[in-house]
Design a protein around this nucleic acid. Structure first.
Lengths: 157, 157
DNA sequence: GTTTGCGTTCGAGCGCGCTCGAAGCCATAG
DNA sequence: CTATGGCTTCGAGCGCGCTCGAACGCAAAC
């Protein structure tokens, strides 16, 4: 399947950062899915605050059930959606777009093409951003390499 | 506009090979440096608004002279600094840090080590960000590839 | 000589994404 | 029996980076 292929590629691109390994774990989506989690557990899993989780719910990104005490109960589906949402947020997708995307999901299968369009556009946005950052990285590395050196050109500040 | 152009040219120079940073630097240096520019020209060059340029000046990031009419006159040094500043902004360095960096520049050569530290830290930040984005990109590509397919895993939404 | 257009200063406002504080409920620990 | 701690709702506030509008100045074009 394409899964192994993509995973391998991702691993190659990522390198040896420990954070990335954890993130890869999230990528596979088979991560700690305890069938039902508290807000604190989800917050910890996604490395966001409980405040933010409540905010996402308020903004209509995810529906969360309550237990007998009125406490939030995150089921597997909610957690999966939140994994997706946080990844999209992390890669720069605005709340607005995420809200639109989720509304499409709620409308059913008929909206799959439009959802795909959104994902493709977002993919392209990420690619552009990576290119930008790669360029800035190169410029920054150059500046570090030449800073104070005899070869330092005139743009040193 | 002009920035995109610059970016594209630079990316062409870079290609897939080991980044030829010198070429980038030459590119930025030999870029339209008309010895003295108006705010509109600089805004166009950097692809930011005149408002933003005035804002940067207000925030102490750059000093700009005036002509007999009180209009801003950007000399080559100011433009070079602004090229640097916009690149740093584009790669995510906060205004605060930029303000600190510039204050170090104004303090003289004694602050070179600290400036280098800042650049190195920023370089690492960019690298981390690129890793993050690379991961999100892989995840997004995976989702696109499997969306609606029979092999769709459980994270479909 | 008025209009167009680009510039100036100043201060206020905005959009985004959280982030927080207050007041209260409930359950378990000491 | 109280205290602690984690949860709830609600609404307000904040930090960042612009972004804009108002009121004005000057000069070249018509």
């Amino acid at each position: 399947m394409a899964t192994d292929e993509l995973l391998t590629r991702a691993l190659e691109l990522i390198g040896d950062d420990p954070v990335s390994v954890e993130a890869i774990h999230r990528l596979t989506d088979t991560a700690v899915t305890a069938e039902s989690m508290t807000i604190a557990e989800v917050a910890d899993l996604l490395d966001i605050t409980a405040h933010t989780l409540r905010y996402y719910e308020r903004e209509g990104l995810v529906e969360v059930g309550r237990d007998s005490l009125g406490h939030r109960v995150y089921d597997a589906a909610a957690v999966r959606r939140l994994v997706f949402l946080t990844r999209m947020r992390l890669s720069g997708m605005p709340m607005r777009d995420l809200q639109h995307y989720i509304s499409l999901v709620d409308e059913g299968d008929g909206t799959v093409p439009e959802r795909l369009d959104m994902l493709i556009e977002h993919r392209d946005t990420i690619r552009r951003r990576i290119r930008e950052l790669t360029l800035s990285l190169a410029a920054t590395e150059f500046k570090i390499a030449t800073y104070g050196g005899t070869a330092a050109p005139d743009s040193m500040d």
